[in-house]
């Protein structure tokens, strides 16, 4: 938990703008490390795993990964943790009950207002 806190504050302090509600994704999901998220990539590749970390490009690190269709992706059988380049991600399915939607909306409004002032 502390790890995620550190990330959020740290990133904010440094640049101010930009990190935005992406941090809330981490607030809502990253902390509950037991939860899974599912990443859908280009070409219908799909990987399930526990969100370990995210960076400013939305590159993602997952632990305890599972490929939904191991027949199709036999090469992933020997891999437990992976780094996914943000640019190839289409969706991330999040555990809904871990997401504070009110928090997300407030953060989005705040960020929109901040971007206005610039």
């Amino acid at each position: 938990m502390k790890i995620v806190d550190g990330m959020v504050e740290g990133t904010r302090g440094r640049g101010g703008r930009r990190i935005s509600w992406v941090k809330n994704v981490k607030d809502s999901t990253g902390m509950k490390i037991s939860e899974c998220c599912e990443i859908l990539l280009e070409r219908e590749r799909c990987i399930c795993g526990t969100l370990h970390s995210v960076d400013q490009f939305l590159n993602i690190k997952l632990t305890d990964i599972n490929v939904t269709d191991p027949e199709k992706y036999p090469h992933m059988l020997s891999v437990k943790t992976c780094f996914i380049r943000g640019s190839v991600v289409r969706y991330v399915q999040l555990p809904a009950d871990e997401c504070d939607t009110q928090l997300l909306q407030d953060a989005t409004r705040k960020e929109a207002a901040q971007n206005k002032q610039r």
Partner: peptide, 21 residues
């Protein structure tokens, strides 16, 4: 070149040889 990378995974050295392949 980075843009061509989809993902990187650490190879699980212990189970590397136990694949059903």
């Amino acid at each position: 070149r980075g843009e061509n990378v989809v993902l990187l995974g650490e190879v699980d050295l212990e189970n590397e040889d136990k694949l059903p392949l």
